[in-house]
Design a protein around this nucleic acid. Structure first.
Lengths: 214, 214
DNA sequence: GCAAAAGTGTTACCGGTACACCCATGT
DNA sequence: ACATGGGTGTACCGGTAACACTTTTGC
């Protein structure tokens, strides 16, 4: 049944700001665009919404086809709808952000797409409003990181408090007092201390922690 | 130029959760639906996005045509995109919430549309996912009210702190300590005390305040 | 011994909460 | 005079910021 006749229709897409964490840097995955216009320019990974999909499902599909992962942490950010935002036609796009472990990506898949991980402070020129999408996503990521404890999706399963501390520092672009940070994250009760120690990055060695099950 | 061929297109709409404040109650404007399916059922005011419009512009247009007001406080809430959310066809809809002064609405216009203001806790059955849209909007309103000081768009230009207090109480569904509330809102520096007093609702009379210019 | 990172402890302050209290005035 | 809502003052509590301090171990 289709009862809305003579109403205009639009292309609708999702664009995914995929955050990863590697070498103590917060990074975003960009790929060279595969279609005109702006063929070859750096772009977020996106895709058109299919008839049987919700936007969330479309975003999950894009994630799966880009980095080969499923059940990814995804968050709706904002809808971008300026009539001229895409020079290839009228496309209304929903921005999402995702958090993944770079180590778990399907490397072959990413390489095939020409994907490249860019440090958050050294991004290249991008097509359309993708820069704006990233800005909004980072804001939202910060607001989530502020209220919840994040890291589960970005860090390895076992990690030290120093690593978590560093992650928060790069997300917010500033350093937190490490003593206070330690107390705060432990007070959430969301972490458990393991018996094992990480010994590479300090002489003393620091205990591993991991997130409790959800 | 249209370079995206053979991609599916969709109807895209905006739905507006219009909040108003009257008789110490938080209310939402609903209208009987004018088209099939579910003709006559209670519905948020919405409209399809036109080719030259952004979603924000579409929402503003809907507001203008519903209550006759322009330059309204509007906030993007969430996109609703379940393929089956609208039984009349595939429609992807962006929910917005708006804050207006009920006293400033164009009464004739609203009456013509059959609009009715419903108290937030006594809403009727609504079409599709409009109930969910309202829930999400109220959440967002609460989060904005928590961080910013709201009331400028809902209260009359001059208002007492008691009125503002009452507004916050109905928005959050609980009463705040009035002494602390008073201190908190005054500490924002966003209000100025007027010389005039409101004398109807108490023997002593209470000073009017108003919001500073943005 | 010393540097470097891990980890603990102590103090001060700030914002919020609870609540007691005073004020002005119409009845 | 007293009930009623307006308005102020104070004491307390918890979280957090600032920072001094101890621990461990490789060099």
């Amino acid at each position: 049944m289709e009862t809305y006749l003579n109403e205009p229709k639009y292309l609708v897409s999702v664009d995914c700001v995929i955050f990863g964490y590697e070498s103590e840097e917060l990074k975003i995955l960009l790929c060279p665009r595969l279609v005109a216009p702006n063929y070859g320019s750096w772009s977020l990974m996106g895709g058109f919404v299919m008839p049987d999909e919700s936007l969330d499902q479309a975003a999950n599909r894009v994630l799966k086809s880009t980095v080969g992962l499923e059940n990814i942490y995804l968050e709706q950010v904002k809808t971008f709808s300026d009539p001229n935002r895409d020079s290839g036609g009228r496309v209304i796009s929903q921005a999402y952000f995702a958090l993944i472990r770079i180590s778990e990506q399907d490397k072959k898949l990413v390489r095939n797409k020409g994907g490249h991980w860019w440090e958050i402070n050294q991004l290249p020129e991008m097509i359309f409003d993708h820069g704006e999408m990233i800005k909004e996503s980072l804001k939202k990521l910060q607001s989530v990181a502020f209220t919840d404890l994040i890291g589960r999706e970005l860090l390895p399963e076992k990690f030290t408090l120093s690593q978590l501390h560093k992650l928060y520092s790069v997300i917010f672009g500033k350093t937190f007092d490490s003593a206070n940070f330690r107390k705060k994250v432990l007070s959430t009760g969301k972490l458990i201390k393991l018996d094992e120690k990480e010994t590479k990055s300090s002489k003393k060695g620091s205990f591993y922690y991991k997130f409790l099950a959800d």
